[in-house]
Every structure is written in structure tokens, then in C-alpha cells.
Amino acid sequence: MLRAADDLLVERGFAALTMEGIAQRAGVAKQTIYRWWKSKVDILLDTLSEDAREALAWQPGEDDPEEGLKRHLRRVADFFEEPAGQVMRALLGHAQLDEETAASLRAGFLREQRERDVAGLRALLARGDGPGVDERTADRLVDLLLGPLYHRVLVCGEPVDEELVNTTARLVVTLANDAPGL
């Protein structure tokens, strides 16, 4: 059912996505869908959380922090182009118009992903020659790390290029090393 919701969103867009369409694509009765989810937003939130848990996970590696950040930012950029990234973009857009969706998105997926991003960034920076960063600093650095990508994709409607990835990674590592306690 989650995959059916993903596929239909990509094919038809958020406005045309219906519970009936999801049920038909999944080959189940509409009542089955309603037993688990009350709306298409709830289904999309679940599919986003499931897909992002793996796709946006921080990967351990032996490279230096800047290379590790570049690798992670490329994964985030790739995610935006995948069906799961399109689900995220649709939900973020809908959240601008619907407070219940915004609250659910913030309390669930966005909070969980933020926690993973802060922990992942801290672990990556601890591998470098610098002093590492505390949780508060990492929280601020996550904004600086991911903000440019979200802006490029969500506001400008453009793909993330290699120059943005490289520049962002370099600046975040520099700030982490030179300005503890941002």
C-alpha cells in the first residue's frame, strides 16, 4: 500500500492522489486502507519515514569529515530526485497550506530526521582533526549543511550541483573547526 501511494503520487501528483486510487493500485479494499490510515497524508508520512530512514542515513566511513559531508550531501541530493523525495516535497508543500499536516510532519518525520542528522554530523566531525562539536553546535550546523540544498530544490526548483555540495561541505567543516559554540 505504501509503494502504491508513492507510485501514484509520482504519476498523478498530490492533488489527484486519492484513497480509492491507492486501494485500487494496491489491490485491496478501500476499507483495508482506512483501517490503517485516516488520510492520504498519513499514508505518505509513513512511506516517507520508511524510505528516508535508509536513504538519508549517515554512512560510516574512513574519509575525512569534508569528504564524508560531500558523500552525505550527494545522497540527500539524490533523494530529492527519487519518488520518496517527491513525496517529501509534496508533503512540505501541502504543509504550507494545512496546519495539521505541518504539525504531523514536524512531530514525526522532520523531528526524527533532524535527530539522525545531528547525531550523524557529530559522529562525522569527531573523526576529524578538529575538536568535534557539541549537540547545540551540531544542531546549528545541520541548518547550514542542509539549508542550501533544501533552498535550491524547494524554492528555486533546481537540482543540487556538485559545486553547491563541495562549497557547503567545506564551509561547514571550516565553521565546525574554527567557531565552536556557534
Rank of each mutant, 00 (worst) to 15 (best):
Arg53Asp: 15
Pro65Cys: 03
Ala29Gly: 08
Phe14His: 13
Arg75Cys: 04
Arg35Thr: 12
Gly68Asn: 07
Ala77Glu: 09
Phe79Ala: 01
Asp46Phe: 04
Arg53Asn: 10
Glu82Asn: 01
Phe79Met: 05
Leu17Ile: 07
Glu67Ile: 15
Leu73Ser: 03
Ser39Phe: 04
Asp63Phe: 08
Asp64Arg: 15
Ala26Gln: 11
Glu81Ala: 10
Glu67Cys: 11
Ala52Ser: 14
Phe79Asn: 06
Ala16Asn: 10
Asp63Leu: 13
Glu66Tyr: 08
Gln59Cys: 00
Val76Ile: 14
Leu44Gly: 08
Ala84Gly: 03
Thr18Ile: 05
Arg75Trp: 00
Ala55Ser: 10
Asp42Arg: 15
Leu56Phe: 02
Tyr34Met: 02
Asp46Cys: 06
Lys70Asp: 04
Ala55Asn: 05
Trp58Val: 15
Gln31Ile: 07
Val41Thr: 15
Pro65Glu: 01
Ser49Pro: 00
Glu50Tyr: 08
Thr47Ser: 15
Ala26Val: 12
Ile33Phe: 02
Ala57Lys: 15
Ile22Trp: 01
Lys38Phe: 11
Gln24Tyr: 02
Glu67Gly: 11
Ala26Pro: 03
Ala57Leu: 02
Trp37Lys: 02
Trp37Ala: 12
Val41Leu: 03
Lys70Ser: 09
Thr47Met: 11
Arg35Trp: 09
Lys40Ser: 12
Gly13Val: 14
Tyr34Leu: 13
Glu62Gly: 11
Arg75Gly: 09
Arg71Tyr: 06
Gly27Ile: 06
Thr18Lys: 06
Tyr34Gln: 09
Arg35Phe: 10
Ala57Gln: 05
Ala55Cys: 07
Trp58Phe: 12
Lys30Leu: 08
Gly27Trp: 05
Glu81Tyr: 02
Arg53Lys: 14
Phe80His: 02
Leu45Lys: 13
Ile22Lys: 01
Ile22Tyr: 09
Leu56Trp: 04
Ala29Val: 13
Met19Asn: 03
Asp42Leu: 04
Leu45Ser: 03
Glu81Leu: 14
Trp58Thr: 13
Ile33Trp: 07
Ile33Met: 05
Lys30Ala: 11
Ile43Cys: 15
Tyr34Arg: 12
Tyr34Asn: 07
Ile43Leu: 14
Ile33Tyr: 04
Asp46Gln: 15
Trp58Lys: 07
Thr47Leu: 11
Gly13Asn: 15
Glu54Arg: 14
Trp37Glu: 00
Phe80Glu: 01
Val28Leu: 06
Glu50Cys: 05
Val28Pro: 05
Gln59Phe: 00
Ala26Ile: 12
Trp36Ser: 12
Phe14Arg: 15
Ala55Tyr: 04
Lys40Ile: 09
Trp58Ser: 07
Gln86Tyr: 00
Glu50Asp: 11
Lys40Cys: 13
Met19His: 00
Ala52Asp: 09
Thr18Met: 04
Gly21Ala: 05
Gln86Cys: 00
Arg25Leu: 00
Val76Gln: 05
Gln24His: 10
Thr32Gly: 00
Leu69Thr: 11
Met19Tyr: 03
